[in-house]
């Protein structure tokens, strides 16, 4: 067991060393946040090739564009709007990048070759593990997986039930397989009786679990009223919170977005979740990096997700339904006070 742990640790270290070795902060950030849509000198991707971009555009404009592209698009910034049109209406998402991180990315883009040379290898992969990412300003990197204590009760019950039943299946298969070394005639009537026992007991177990679990569904209860209603609108590749419903991209630019959503603890909040383009996911993670609640954001429909937060802190929200090239970047967060 200790040997296995040692191998595991060594392998993890090798993976992380490979991931972080000799990469500058700006380059690392670029590879973390930008590379799924942009290249430097390798042609257009989802977004423009950023080779020489610091010469083509003003520094202040670039700095703000990196930090808050959604706001600039909402303000109809002419360059931002032209880029949106040129790149198939795929908007640059708000990646919750801090001013310091924007400086580092711009420093890398100003001289990518030198940065790469200084870092040793322009193509070295960057990790995804290091920085603070939430707009709330709280650092929430989770290099370590959730533990038994933080994983969540449902996740623990499901995972360990699975492991137990899978182990029983493996043992039964190996035991039955091993009996073939001693061939005998078997009593099929006894086997059929055993099958009947399995069927009846299996049916009772299934009905029991159904009875216990079907009362614990996440669907909104019509008899209760939420304390607070928040509208969450998804659009490739960002979420917008507002106090009013949004039904079109045009409306999105006219409503007042909630720039930093704060929710009082122990109140019942109803998120009315929809999408203006593809189907997205709306998954709220807790501070241990565990899925807390989720629903889908579907065009033409509004899903009502009710959540009661008991612990204060920053809760990241990730898109969990694949929605295109920057799907893994689509995120926002909320703060529970």
């Amino acid at each position: 067991m200790r040997k296995m742990m040692l191998i595991w640790t060594v392998f993890s270290q090798l993976v992380s060393i490979a991931a972080f070795a000799d990469v500058s902060d700006g380059q690392k950030l670029f590879q973390q946040r930008c590379i799924s849509c942009h290249t430097v000198g390798k042609g257009k991707g989802v977004g423009p090739d950023l080779q020489g971009v610091t010469q083509r555009r003003e520094q202040a404009w670039l700095h703000r564009w990196i930090r808050e592209p959604d706001k600039m698009l909402a303000e109809n910034d002419p360059t931002a709007t032209a880029l949106l049109k040129e790149y198939n209406q795929v908007p640059m998402p708000n990646m919750a990048i801090t001013p310091e991180q924007a400086d580092q990315i711009l420093a890398y883009l100003a001289n990518p070759t030198a940065e790469a040379a200084a870092s040793g290898d322009a193509n070295t992969a960057a990790g995804t593990t290091s920085e603070a990412t939430s707009p709330g300003g709280s650092s929430q990197a989770h290099d370590q997986a959730p533990t038994f204590a933080t994983r969540g009760r449902t996740q623990n019950i499901a995972f360990f039930s699975f492991l137990f039943i899978a182990l029983v299946i493996v043992l039964v298969f190996f035991w039955v397989g091993s009996t073939t070394s001693n061939p005998q005639t078997i009593d099929m009537k006894a086997a059929y009786k055993l099958r009947k026992v399995f069927f009846i007991s299996g049916s009772f177990v299934a009905m029991g679990i159904l009875a216990i679990t079907m009362s614990k569904t996440p669907y909104a209860d019509a008899l209760t009223t939420p304390d607070n209603v928040i509208y969450a609108t998804a659009m490739q590749f960002s979420f917008t919170f507002s106090n009013e419903p949004v039904s079109s991209a045009q409306e999105l630019s006219t409503v007042s977005p909630i720039s930093s959503l704060e929710i009082p603890r122990d109140t019942l909040v109803e998120f009315r979740v929809t999408s203006l383009d593809a189907t997205h996911g709306f998954a709220i993670y807790n501070q241990q990096g565990v899925v807390f609640a989720q629903t889908q954001a579907m065009p033409g429909y509004t899903n009502r997700l009710r959540v009661r937060f008991s612990e204060p802190g920053v809760y990241p929200v990730l898109c969990l339904e694949y929605c295109g090239a920057a799907h893994h970047m689509m995120r926002t967060s909320l703060v529970v006070k």
Binding site: F11, S12, V15, S16, A19, Q32, S36, G127, T128, T129, S130, E131, A132, T133, Q140, A141, H142, D143, Q144, A145, P146, R151, G152, Q155, N156, A158, F159, F162, A283, Y285, G289, V290, V291, P316, L318, L320, Y322, H327, H328, M329, R331
Partner: peptide
């Protein structure tokens, strides 16, 4: 299975900070 139990999303090209352990 371990990743799923630990809330690592499917269909992510790379993992954000909250689920960075998915890379290992």
């Amino acid at each position: 299975y371990i990743s799923g139990a630990n809330s690592v999303p499917r269909r992510f090209a790379t993992y954000p900070a909250e689920v960075a352990h998915g890379a290992s």
